[in-house]
Every structure is written in C-alpha cells, then in structure tokens.
Amino acid sequence: MSKPPSSRGFGERLQHWLPRLVLSPSFVLVLFFVYGFILWTTYISFSNSGMLPDYTWAGTRQWSRLWSSWTWGIALHNIWVFGLLYIVTCTALGLLLAILLDQRIRAEGTLRTIYLYPMALSFIVTGTAWQWFLNPGLGLERTMHSLGWESFSFNWLIDANMAIYTVVIAAVWQATGFIMAMFLAGLRGIDGEMIKAAQIDGAPAWKIYLRIIIPQLRPVFLSAIVVLAHLAIKSFDLIVAMTGGGPGNATAVPATFMYSYAFSRNEMGIASASAVFMLAVIAALIIPYLYSELRESRS
C-alpha cells in the first residue's frame, strides 16, 4: 500500500532530498573548479595567451611552439629517466624490503613504521633535507672531509649530468616505504599452506618467491606502478625544493616547465599546452586502471 507522492510526509521527502542537498555544493565546486578549469586550460592552449589570458583563437600555434622548445625536450627526457628509475627502484626495493620484513622478525612493527615515515613528510621537506644532505659544501661530502676522508667527492647535485639522479634518490627514499607496505599486505594474503606445499615439493626459498609468491603479487605490482607513475609525472615540489630545476635546466620536468612558463616567462599558452599534455598522459595511465579495478569489483 504505497501512498501517492503528493501525500508523502515531510520526513520522507527530506530523506529523499537530503543526500542530494548535502552533496550538491561540493559537486558544483568540483564541476566548476576542476572540470571547468580543465576545459578553460585546454582552450587557453589553443589561444594567443601570453602573460594574461587572451581568448583569440590561435589554432595549434602554442602546441608547435611547445614541441619545438629545447627546454621541453629536456623536461621530457628527464621525466623518462626519472620516472623509469623511480618506478623500477621503488618497486624492486619495496618488494625486497617487504620480503625481508615478512620473515617473522621481532621488531617488525617498529621497522615498518620507520620505513613508512618518509611518506608522512611533504615533498618540500624531503627536497630541502636531501638538498642539504647532498650539498657538497654542507652535507655528506663536507662531513666526510671533516672526518679525514679528504678525497671523498659526491657532487651530483651540482653536476648537470647527474643532478636528476639525486632527485631519484630522494624520491625513492620517500616512496619505498609505502610501496613496501603495499607488498607486505600482498604477501600476508598468500595462503601459508601453499608455501608449505612448495617446501615439501623441495623448492628452495628463493624459488618459492620467484615461482609461486611473486606471480601472485601481480595486482600489487599493477597498483604500485600506477601510484608511482602518476606521482612521477606530477613531481614538482620535490624538484623545486631540491634543485629548482637546475643546475641550468638540467632537472627540469614537465611540471616545473609548466610552472616557469606560466608564472615567470609569461607564456600562458605554452604552459597550458604542456599542462594538457600531462593530463592526457596521466589519464592514459589511470583510466584503464580504474576501469579494470571497477569492473573487477562489480563482478
């Protein structure tokens, strides 16, 4: 016996509308400030904008200027080197640490927290700390010299060819603990009887990991790589804090490129084009991942 809608009680109508009412402000804000500005930025990348937005249509002029820019080439090269090293090192180190932590050692809880701590720091703090630590005049090199090892030299931070690797070191230091926690959770989900069966089958420990455990961690690998890849593409604050994109343009990445073109070089159009390009790359990574994840959870 359902009542006609007009005679429904106030409470019932409120219950019907309340969720929409509560959600609508944030929905409107996200719609405007996220998706609205994505569209706006995309338009700007096809306009004549310089220091200020200029809405005259310029076709692909800004895009061709972007792709002929020498700095953009360096930034793309750097993001490749940085991203690849960052993802591979973090995954390998994270997995190794997780396997070592999974050996039922005593201080596991403490160690896990220690490894996870860097993730709690902001990239700015990490960048500044590592800048001090690797600065030849302040940190490691100077300490070694004062300890009497006069010939010690580690000046990657100020070496244009090596500076990008110092950024990799700092970024790996920060994210490895988190990746380790992901792998540890994966390892804990593996059926212990399977490992016993493999032991009885006569497999040595390294073969048990290689042949039986690691193949089962495939979903964890996928998640780890997606998380790391989008962190790598978005990396900005770490580089700004650590090297400022320098020496010269040696550690420029698309995010620092975009920032400097938008706010110091008054080239809003090129900056927008680079921003849209980064969005497209991240979307190409994330959308298939989300699609597969959501499809799995639905079925």
């Binding site: 009887e193 016993k196 032991q199 009885i200 497999a203 039986i212 193949p215």
Partner: peptide
C-alpha cells in the same frame, strides 16, 4: 628437511599454485 623425508602432503585448502 620436509623435501628430504620422501613424503607428500595434500592440504585442506589444496594449496595449488595459482600461477
């Protein structure tokens, strides 16, 4: 060591290697 005892075991969860 289990592998040197010349035994084989069938587990409750079957413990098959999924990969």
């Amino acid at each position: 060591h289990p592998s040197r005892r010349d035994i084989a075991m069938v587990f409750q969860s079957y413990a098959l290697y999924p990969s």
